[in-house]
Design a protein around this nucleic acid. Sequence first.
DNA 1: TCGTGGCGGGG
DNA 2: GTGTACGCCACGA
Length: 804
Amino acid sequence: MSEDKKTLDLEVFILDISYEVVGNSPVILIWGIDREGRRILIKDHSFRPYFYFLPYEDADVSEKEIISSIKKISSPRSPITEVSPVSKKLFGREVKAYMVKTVIPEAVREYREKIKDLPFVKEVLEADIRFAMRYSIDKDLAPSTWHVLRLREVSSSGVYRVDGEYELIDIINRNVSSVPPPLRVVAFDIEVYNPRGSPRADIDPVIIIAVMNDKGEIYQFVAEDHNDRDVIQKFVDYIIKYDPDVLVGYNTSLFDLPYLIERAKRNRIVLDISRRKNSEPRQSAYGHISISGRLHVDLYHFAEEISEIKIKSLDYVAEFFGVMKRSERTNIEWYDIYKYWDDPERRKILLKYSRDDVISTYGIAEKILPYAIQLSALTGLPLDQVGAASVGNRLEWYLIREAYKYNELVPNREERPYEPYKGAIVLEPKPGIHENIAVLDFSSMYPNIMIKYNIGPDTFVSDPSECDVIECYEIPGTNYRFRKDPPGFYKKVLETLLKLRKSIREEMKKYSPNSVEYKVLDERQRGVKILANAAYGYMGWIGARWYYKQGAEAVTALGRMIITKAIEIAEKLGLKIIYGDTDSLFLYYDEKKINEFIKEIEEKLELEIKIDKIYRRVYFTEAKKRYVGLTVDGNIDIVGFEAVRGDWTDLAKEVQENVAEIILRTGSVDKAIDYVRRVIRELEERKISYEKIIIWKTITKRLEEYEAQAPHVRAAKILLAKGGRVAIGDKIGYVIIKGSGKISDRAMPYMYATINDIDTEYYIEHQIIPAAMRILSYFGISEKTLRGSKGVKSLFEFTEKRIS
DNA sequence: TCGTGGCGGGG
DNA sequence: GTGTACGCCACGA
C-alpha cells in the first residue's frame, strides 16, 4: 500500500458495507459510487469488534478483579485488547457495564459464551450484532445514502472489480442526499429442465438464462441441449462485463441462485459474478443470498407483504404493478417446460416465455427499488437485506441505531411464551344501505397513543402506589401506569419519526410532483410512516428485543377509550354512527357537524381525525368487518367480503363484486338476480373459464401436522404423490371434481383436471350462491330465487328494510 | 345442530 | 419470526 498519495474529500453513495479478515485482522469494505459514477471500494482498517457485559449489581468483586478475570480468558488467536467499565443505560436505567474489545469478529461468539458463564456476569449484551452493521451504526453511515468521506487513494490490490480503491481517513459529512445516482441494474431469470416435475439441481441442467438491463437490452443465453456449462459461463461473463450494482430477480434467493450455484459446482466452474474476484454468492442474513460488492434484491419479498396481491407468482405481481397483463404474456405451466425444450418448434415459445419473465422482473424492480432504497437508507439495512428482513426486523434495526444515539444498550432476544391480550373495539354495524357516509380515521392512532402516554418498558410502573396520577398516566381498564417523565425510548423514537415525516412532506412542497426529488421524498415519507405504524405491533411481538406486553395492552386499552369518547362526542353533536373499527368511524356526512366533530376531537382528545373517504352509498349486513361502498368518485370498495379473500374462487369474487356493484349503482335487486342466474347457467354449460374456478389455499405447516384433512391438504398430498414438491407457504390450487364422498376427497390439484371433470353443483352451492347471498339475503332473496327463474321484486319493495 | 379447529384478510 | 378481532369452512360429537 503506498502512503505517499494525498487525501481527497469525495461524495460517496454507499451500496453495501461488508468486511473480510486479512492476515489476522478485519478490514471493513465500503462499496460505493462517487459523483463521477466511478464504482469504488473504501477500506477501513481501524475498526474492531466489541460487546458488553453487565456484572451483578451485588457481585462481591472489584473492578480490577473483573477486568483481570476477563483478560485471563483472552486467547492468542484473537486477543482481548480492552476491557473497560462504561456508563450505559438499559431500559432507561443507568447501568455500569463493561466493554470487551477483541480483534477478529468471529471470536466474539466464543468470548460471549465464556463470559456469560462467569459467576459475576449477569448478562452479555450486543454480542449478536453483525460486524458490518456494528460499523455502520457506530459511524452513522447508512447505506443507500450519500456521505462526504475523506479518503486516501491506494494502489489497486488486483482483487476487486472496482474503478478505485481508497483508505478511509475521516467522515466529513453524513446523509447529504438520498437521491440515488443512476444505478446499473440487471434483472435475471433462469429456466431449467424438469422431466420429473420439480427440477433437481444435481442432475437437471439450466436451459435458458435471460437478462435485462437498465438500458432496456435483453439477452438470452441458451444451453446446448442438456449441457449447461456454456450457458452458465456466458451469464458469468455478461455480469462481469456489464458490472451491475443491483442484480434483481424473482424468488432468486430460494431458487435461481442456489440452483446456479449447484449447477456451477457440478460443471466445475466458478460462479464468479461478484466484485470480489473468485468469490461466489453465499447465504447471508435472513436467508438471502449475498454477492460481494453488488446488491442482490429478491423482489419476491416485497410482493409477499402486499396483501392486495392474492397469488404471488411473477405473472400476477407484474400484472398488479401494471408491468404486463397476464392475458398478454406467454403462459407455460411449469411442469411442461421440459416438453417445450425438447420440441424445436415449441422451444421458441419457451424463449418468449423466458423473455416475458425477465421483462416482468425488470418492470417490477422499477416500481419497487425506489421505495426499497429509501427503506434501506432509513433502517440502515443494506438494500439487498432490507426486503428479506421482516417488518419487525426492519423496525428493530432502526431502533438499534436510535438506541446507540441515546447510549442505550440493546436488549437481547429472548425466548418467551405467547401471551394473548385484548385488542381493539369493533362496533356492530347498522345493517342496510346508507347514503352519504363519511369515514373518519384517527391519524396514526397507535403511534400517537404511545407518544402521548409515554408507553414502553422503561416508563412502566409496576406498583401503582409508587406513582400518583400527577406523575403518571393511568391506563383505563388496566392497573398499569406509565411515568410522564422522562420521555421513554419508544416515545423519543416515534417523535423523531413523526417529525421526520413532517419535515419530508414540507421538503416535498419545494419540488414539482414530477421531479425525481419529489418522488424520492415521497417514497421516504411512506417508509417512515410504515415504520412508525409498526411500533405497536412490534412491542407486542414476543420475538422483539423491546417486547412489552403491558405496553401493547395499554395501547389497545387507550385505543378503546379514545374511540368510545369519540362516539360520545359524535352522538352529542347528533351525528349518527353506522360503524367503527379500531381507529375509524362511519358517520352520516353533515359537513358542518363533521367539521365541528373534527374540531372537538382535536380539543378534547388532542388527537387528529380526518375524513378518509365519503361514500355515496355504503351497504352493511349484520357482520362486522365487511361492507361494500360506492365512493363519491365512483369507485366500488369491497371490504371483508369473499370478493377480497384469496381463498375463494375468482368466479365467486367476480359474482360478489358484480352483485355489489349492480346494487350500489342501480339500486335494482332484479338486475342482480338476473345476473346471478346467468352465471349459474354458464357454469352448468361449462362455458366458464377453468382458471376462474380454481380455489387457492396456503399450506401453513408441514403436511403431517394437519389433523383435519382439509381439501387443500388433500390436494397437496396428491401433488406430492405425483412427484411435485410442497413447501410451507405454497399456495395450492385445486378444483372439486365429480364423484361421491366428502368434498375433501374430491379435491384435485387443478393441473390434473379439466372443466369437464368439475362438480358444477359444488360450485353453485358453495361458491356462487353463498357469495351472492351474503349481499342479497338482506333484501329477502332466497337461494331458490337465485336458482329459479320467477319474476323478482325491485329494491323499492324492500324499502321498509332500509335503515336510512 | 352445534362446538371446535383451522385459516386468511383488513382496520 | 408485528398485533387482535372476526367470519367462515369442514368435520365430528
